[in-house]
Amino acid sequence: MAGEKNNKEKLILDSAVALFTSKGFQATRMEDVAKNAGISKGLTYFYYKNKEDLFMALTKKAFDQFKDEFREVYRSKGKNGLEMLSELVIKIPAFAKANQVYYDSILNFLDLMKKYNNPETRDQINPLILESTHFQKLLEIHHEPAKIGVMMVSQGIKDGSIRTELQPEITFYTVWSMIIGYEKMMGPIEYEGKEIKINPSNWQPGFQKLLQDMLRGTIQAVKPVNVQGSLF
């Protein structure tokens, strides 16, 4: 029974991702999602109360997959903390490109949290979002990818690859904010065309190399220490 439930939920989420990609969130209706998934509209509403609830479920799945990307880097053998951060500079844009709807939902949720954390703007959030059980779960787990990123910085301080006087949380969030800025600027850069002397196809490798060079030039310890990884 649980397996069937999971399969139905996956069908609905996959359908939503496809439609949000092709039509956008606003233009997609729940009946469109149901039809594309090959199930009844009533069953779709059984699993997700409304489109906002469905989008929050999609966002939670996005954060789960995003966390897996961070965990994969953190668990990679033979890398010091600085090398892990440098790999994230490649990993995050690659994740965004391969999973644009998921990454957009993550950025949307981060914007949503700005309103949620401010009592004066919380009432601007759609009540259907606040009522979603998936939104409540997101409040608990949305920081988990960042926690792993902070652990990478802490590891770098410990292994000697990152300056000891740096604060792990501030360091990681500064790096991530630069990557988010890159993603947000991709649209304007592609739209400007001839007005700006930059080719979108070579901007990504150029940005990644520059950011990696900046990391080495600003947070790298003067004498990085190579620490042998565990044999087990």
Rank of each mutant, 00 (worst) to 15 (best):
G3C: 02
K5F: 08
K5V: 09
E9N: 10
L11K: 07
L13V: 13
D14S: 04
A16I: 01
V17N: 01
A18D: 13
A18V: 02
L19Y: 01
F20T: 01
K23N: 05
K23D: 01
F25E: 02
T28Q: 05
R29S: 08
V33E: 00
V33M: 00
A34E: 07
N36D: 13
N36Q: 12
I39E: 06
S40V: 05
L43D: 03
T44R: 00
D53H: 06
D53N: 05
L58I: 00
A62M: 05
Q65I: 10
Y74I: 07
K77N: 15
G78F: 09
G81S: 09
V89M: 13
A94G: 15
F95T: 12
F95C: 08
D104R: 01
N108V: 02
L112G: 08
K115G: 04
N118W: 01
N118L: 04
T121K: 07
N126G: 13
L128Q: 15
I129T: 12
L130N: 12
L130W: 09
S132C: 11
S132F: 11
T133S: 10
F135R: 09
E144T: 00
P145N: 01
A146E: 11
G149N: 12
G149E: 11
M152E: 12
V153W: 14
V153K: 09
S154N: 08
Q155R: 13
Q155H: 13
I157N: 05
S161V: 11
L166I: 07
Q167N: 12
Q167F: 07
F172Q: 04
V175H: 12
W176K: 04
M178V: 15
E183L: 11
M185Q: 05
M185S: 06
G187C: 06
P188S: 00
Y191N: 09
G193K: 03
I196G: 04
I198T: 14
N199R: 03
P200E: 00
P200K: 02
N202P: 07
W203R: 11
P205L: 10
G206L: 12
Q208C: 13
K209I: 10
A221S: 15
K223S: 14
K223F: 14
V227D: 05
G229L: 06
G229S: 10
L231N: 14
